[in-house]
Amino acid sequence: MTEIVLKQGAEAKLYIGNYNGTICLVKERFVKNYRLPELDKTLSKQRIKAEQKSAKRCKDCGIKAPKIFHADFKERKVYMEYFDKAITVKDYIIEIQKDEEQIKLICQRIGNVVGKMHENNIIHGDLTTSNMLIDKNENDYELIMIDFGLSSYSTSNEDKGVDLYVLERALISTHSNLPQLFDEIIVHYKESYQASDETIKRFEEVRARGRKRTMIG
C-alpha cells in the first residue's frame, strides 16, 4: 500500500493507514541520529507510551481525543483514530480572526478543555493551537486534543503552571495579532478547574522566573 503522507513534522510523519480493516492515522516517529541511540530509543518509547496513556485519560474524563488502536514500539508507530474533516485550531483562528464572537467561543472551548485536563491531572506538555483540532462541519464543534508525546500525569502546580506558560508563549508567537487570546482562555480555564487559583499563582511565578532570568550575557 502506498502511504499518503499528510504531514511531516520535526519528530514524526503522519499518514493514512489501515488497522484491522479500519482506516486510521499512523504516526511514525523518526530515528534521530543526532542523539545517542540509547537515549533516542528511550525517548521514543516514552513518548509513544505517553501518547497512548494520555489520549485514553482524556477520553475517560470526557475530552475528545483520538482513540489509540495500537502502538508498535519496534516500528515506532502509533495507529489512531483519524478525523478526516478536522482542521487545526491554528488555521481556524486565522480564518475567523476578525469575528469577535467566534474568537470568544473558541477561547471558551480551549479554556474549558485545558481546565478539565488539569482538573484531571493531565499535563499536555506541548499546548499549542496546532495540537488542537475542531470538526467544524457540525453546527457546533468540540475541541479535539492531539499530540500527547510530551504529556504526563502530575498533580503538581509547577507542572500545570509550566503547561500554561507553554500555551501562553505559543499563542504569542503564533497569533501575535490577537493578544487577548490568553486572558480570555484563562477566564474559562477557571470555570472548569476547581483548584485553578493555586495553579495560576504558580504559573505567574514560572512567568516571573522567565522574565527575571536574563541576568548574565
Partner: peptide, 15 residues
C-alpha cells in the same frame, strides 16, 4: 558510559 538523566523539553522550552 551513558548515565540516564532527566530529559526536560516542554513545548519549545527546556529546563
Amino acid at each position: 558510559k551513558y548515565y540516564t538523566l532527566p530529559y526536560a523539553v516542554k513545548g519549545m522550552d527546556v529546563s
